[in-house]
Simulated scan of single mutants.
Amino acid sequence: MSTPLGDFVRAKRDSIEPAAFGLPERGRRRSPGLRRSDLAARAGISVEYLTRIEQGRDRNPSPAVVNALADGLSLDAAEREHLRYLVKITGGTCAGQQQPAPPDREVRPTVRETLRLLEPAAAYVTNRLGDVLAHTAAFEQLMLPTGLFDSDAPNLTRFVFTDPRARTVFPDWDQVADEHAFDLWLGPSAAAAHWFTAQLAPVAGPDFTRRLNHHLLPPQVPLRLAHLTARELRLQRERLELPRTDGQQLVVLLPADDTTAETLGHLLHPAPVPLRAIS
Rank of each mutant, 00 (worst) to 15 (best):
residue 3 T to K: 08
residue 5 L to V: 03
residue 7 D to Q: 04
residue 8 F to M: 11
residue 8 F to K: 03
residue 9 V to A: 04
residue 12 K to I: 11
residue 13 R to H: 01
residue 14 D to H: 15
residue 15 S to H: 05
residue 16 I to P: 03
residue 16 I to N: 07
residue 22 G to I: 00
residue 22 G to H: 00
residue 23 L to A: 03
residue 29 R to C: 01
residue 31 S to M: 13
residue 33 G to Q: 03
residue 34 L to C: 02
residue 35 R to I: 03
residue 40 A to C: 09
residue 40 A to L: 07
residue 41 A to K: 09
residue 42 R to F: 12
residue 44 G to K: 04
residue 46 S to L: 06
residue 47 V to H: 08
residue 50 L to G: 05
residue 51 T to Q: 05
residue 52 R to S: 10
residue 52 R to Q: 10
residue 55 Q to H: 02
residue 56 G to C: 01
residue 57 R to D: 00
residue 59 R to C: 10
residue 61 P to M: 01
residue 61 P to V: 00
residue 62 S to P: 06
residue 62 S to F: 04
residue 65 V to T: 01
residue 66 V to I: 05
residue 68 A to Q: 00
residue 71 D to W: 08
residue 74 S to Q: 15
residue 77 A to D: 10
residue 78 A to I: 12
residue 82 H to A: 04
residue 83 L to R: 02
residue 86 L to Y: 00
residue 87 V to C: 11
residue 88 K to Q: 15
residue 89 I to W: 11
residue 94 C to H: 15
residue 95 A to T: 10
residue 97 Q to T: 13
residue 99 Q to N: 13
residue 101 A to D: 14
residue 102 P to W: 06
residue 103 P to M: 05
residue 110 T to N: 14
residue 110 T to I: 14
residue 111 V to Y: 07
residue 112 R to N: 13
residue 113 E to S: 13
residue 115 L to A: 07
residue 119 E to W: 05
residue 123 A to D: 05
residue 126 T to K: 09
residue 127 N to C: 12
residue 127 N to S: 10
residue 129 L to T: 05
residue 131 D to G: 03
residue 133 L to I: 04
residue 142 L to V: 06
residue 145 P to I: 01
residue 147 G to T: 02
residue 148 L to W: 08
residue 149 F to N: 10
residue 149 F to P: 11
residue 149 F to L: 09
residue 149 F to E: 08
residue 149 F to I: 10
residue 149 F to G: 06
residue 152 D to V: 14
residue 153 A to W: 12
residue 161 F to M: 03
residue 164 P to W: 00
residue 166 A to D: 08
residue 167 R to L: 08
residue 167 R to P: 07
residue 169 V to E: 07
residue 170 F to A: 02
residue 171 P to D: 04
residue 172 D to F: 05
residue 173 W to S: 02
residue 174 D to T: 13
residue 177 A to L: 03
residue 179 E to H: 14
residue 179 E to A: 12
residue 182 F to E: 05
residue 182 F to C: 06
residue 183 D to Y: 12
residue 185 W to R: 03
residue 187 G to Q: 09
residue 188 P to V: 06
residue 190 A to D: 13
residue 192 A to V: 11
residue 192 A to G: 11
residue 193 A to D: 10
residue 193 A to E: 10
residue 194 H to G: 15
residue 195 W to T: 11
residue 197 T to I: 15
residue 200 L to T: 09
residue 200 L to F: 07
residue 201 A to M: 04
residue 202 P to S: 11
residue 205 G to A: 02
residue 206 P to Y: 02
residue 207 D to I: 06
residue 209 T to V: 01
residue 210 R to A: 14
residue 210 R to S: 13
residue 213 N to A: 13
residue 215 H to I: 04
residue 216 L to S: 04
residue 216 L to H: 06
residue 218 P to N: 02
residue 220 Q to D: 15
residue 222 P to G: 02
residue 222 P to D: 03
residue 225 L to W: 03
residue 228 L to I: 12
residue 228 L to A: 15
residue 232 E to Q: 13
residue 233 L to P: 00
residue 234 R to C: 13
residue 235 L to C: 01
residue 238 E to C: 14
residue 239 R to G: 11
residue 246 D to E: 11
residue 247 G to R: 09
residue 252 V to D: 02
residue 253 L to G: 06
residue 255 P to N: 01
residue 260 T to W: 07
residue 262 E to P: 10
residue 263 T to H: 08
residue 263 T to I: 12
residue 266 H to T: 14
residue 267 L to S: 07
residue 268 L to G: 01
residue 273 V to S: 07
residue 273 V to A: 11
residue 277 A to Y: 12
residue 278 I to D: 09
